[in-house]
Nucleic acid binder design. Structure first.
Lengths: 225, 225, 225, 225
DNA sequence: ACAATCGGGACTCCCCGTTCTT
DNA sequence: AAGAACGGGGAGTCCCGATTGT
């Protein structure tokens, strides 16, 4: 779920994979052929994030100042804030997102909602798992441990629920502000977020995918015990 | 759900419902007894909160500084931070909570979980509604509108889900860290929080209790659409 | 040199081993037969110091608050400040001092000053070395690393130079405010302090006593190179 | 010796004698050239210091708050801390230093160390004495009287001893970390600091230069009495 | 007497708006 | 015109002294 978040939505900085939809001349959607300037921006963005992660890992979140991050990334502090609205965002933003939305929309319309959600998650998760297990785990751990990040994470989940609701609305043809849709989306997101945080805190002793599937089946059964 | 939050757990300051446990002669739970010192603390705490609410209502959350609140409450800024860890906490803490936990535990054990939850909510809500409707609404609106508060609210919901889970564990006899329990508790909390926020944002056009009941019934049906 | 410092001279709290000289009814100089109350005070003082050392070792000086120390020692923060004027003093005070002054005064009057100093140091040092090498080292390291402590340490050295000057005045029969005495005392203290700090920072690769002796011999030679 | 201190080394703020080294077109060492930005910074720095001195002279060190200084200098309190790490630093930093280092390096290599030191001191002191006798005295008095400043002063002396040691290493060709060098440098600094402080406290009844020369001659004689 | 509490000031850091520089 | 530097201001932490209460 962490990776469900739509990408960094800061004013100035737009990410490649979330290419300012609706703007005039959109750069190639794949991010491959971005303009020279865009490429440079991306690199700066990455440099800042990498510096941040390294320093935070070494010193902890609160002991790491934005100034240190800026210095390490060889930019000015003000530049950091031009790329990320807050210190929290540096940790929380992820470019490789929005994949899940894609995955969900690609499920056949005949599937029941929860089944589609399950398949979308397992599909996109499995993709991630081989790429960046260690880095993702480190990030998840940071998020669960630092209250500010945890709180922000919930805000991101809100946006994810929104996305999920829209996707479901499209699948089912129900109106956008349908109460049922809201309940389904928010319950699923709420449960999954909790389960994942819990799994991280419990030191990842069980298999995550299995845990998620068990959680989804409880939801399908109607929350009976 | 908003009012589910267990009371402010700041180091020095103890809330009414958490009346300095373990000291010799415990002051009456209502706050009536209690040493002069304790009484004064309570009054200070209230004074700060009231000043905060008034100023924030007049000027908005971000335009109100802690210094102003302190001045208005006739204490020093540092005193404010001794009573509330953060500015956010001033708004979010509520002494009149934990009622819901009580209500839930009092439902007969034979009821299915979701029914018990519904009854507990409607019961304790109704109690609130006559007491402090205006103030509660103002507070809810503040929380939904100010991102920082909204994020914090989710942290409180986490604690509420915890509480709900424990209550359900007791009712059902399941182990404390049972996955099913976690899913149920977090899904219910997630959905209700969302629905309530949504209701506040939509200017309270429908009846809240009815909305909540519809939401719960969706959960009971297994999130089918 | 660290241990040269005369003991904690805080208003309220007087240490047993520095038994308020010149006061009316001095308790036994050994500290053995102090009044019941004095004994308790001593114990509190020790408890605070021990808590402080443990917490500081674990968390670092700046990450350890006086409140934490107080809680760990099971006293109130205000009590901490009744026993120690400042946080720094908790680390810097040592009851087992003033031994050196003793040692110096016991040297035969015929010895040249620097020789007497050397003998006094080696004598009292050697006594220490078997008792608490690890603890002393930890303390020295703390002092060299934390600027506040280092600065305070210099203040203590000032007082030591005073003491040395008085001792030399007595040995030589010179007037108390003789310039020569001041120069000798302050030069010796300055050099030894520096050499010891330097030794601690250089990870104690050489033998300390030998280093001190070499330093003293440079002083005797008249600072020629 | 007081004025030996190398200039303020706070992160953002660069002093006159340390004029943003490594930048493209270096501004003239006198501060005459320099970009508009640099000029302004210098002026701000000076304004803060002047306000500080005036207020402290009128009200005393402890009765003067940083806020007052900031207000008087027409900057924000946070700006004060951007220019000076601590309140102490406002008083202790001096741009007109490093002259002594210069003076020392200019002495002929054939002179014995202590002689060179004497000449360097007398030379640079005499330069000072005509310029700013009153201000320097006021500052010295402040430093001797306020314990915090006195403690900080010792830290500065440490750095001075460093400088002296390096200068001597260059003169004599000895290795940088030679014990003898350390002893000479720290003994000289320790003695001179003490003598100067003592002179200030004794109300400057004798001639300072003569006192310093007597002190140096004691050092040369090998601290014999 | 002794502890809880408050006041206040030093200090840090985040974040944002403006100004200067390139 | 983009980006860095700079300043302002507010949140928050901690130390310590003075007052108040038990």
């Amino acid at each position: 779920m962490t990776t469900m978040s739509s990408s960094g939505t800061h004013h100035t900085a737009s990410s490649t994979l979330d290419p300012a939809p609706g703007r005039g001349r959109a750069p190639a959607a794949t991010g491959a052929g971005a303009s020279l300037r865009e490429r440079k921006k991306l690199r700066t963005r990455q440099a800042i994030r990498e510096s941040a992660y390294r320093l935070i890992t070494e010193q902890g979140y609160h002991n790491t100042t934005v100034e240190q991050i800026a210095e390490d990334a060889e930019v000015s502090p003000s530049t950091v804030f031009r790329y990320f609205a807050t210190k929290e965002e540096i940790v929380l933003t992820a470019e490789h997102d929005a994949l899940m939305e894609q995955a969900l929309l690609e499920r056949p319309a005949s599937e029941p909602p929860l089944v589609a959600v399950r398949e979308a998650i397992t599909g996109s998760m499995r993709g991630k798992y081989q790429d960046i297990p260690a880095e993702l785990m480190q990030r998840l751990q940071l998020i669960t441990q630092v209250p500010e990040l945890r709180a922000q994470m919930h805000a991101i989940m809100d946006r994810n629920a929104e996305m999920l609701r829209r996707a479901l609305a499209e699948r089912t043809g129900r109106p956008e502000d349908d109460l049922e849709l809201k309940v389904v989306a928010s319950a699923v997101c709420g449960a999954l977020t909790h389960v994942i945080f819990d799994w991280v805190e419990r030191d990842q002793q069980e298999d995550l995918m299995e845990t998620i599937e068990r959680a989804l089946s409880v939801l399908e059964r109607g929350l009976t015990l």
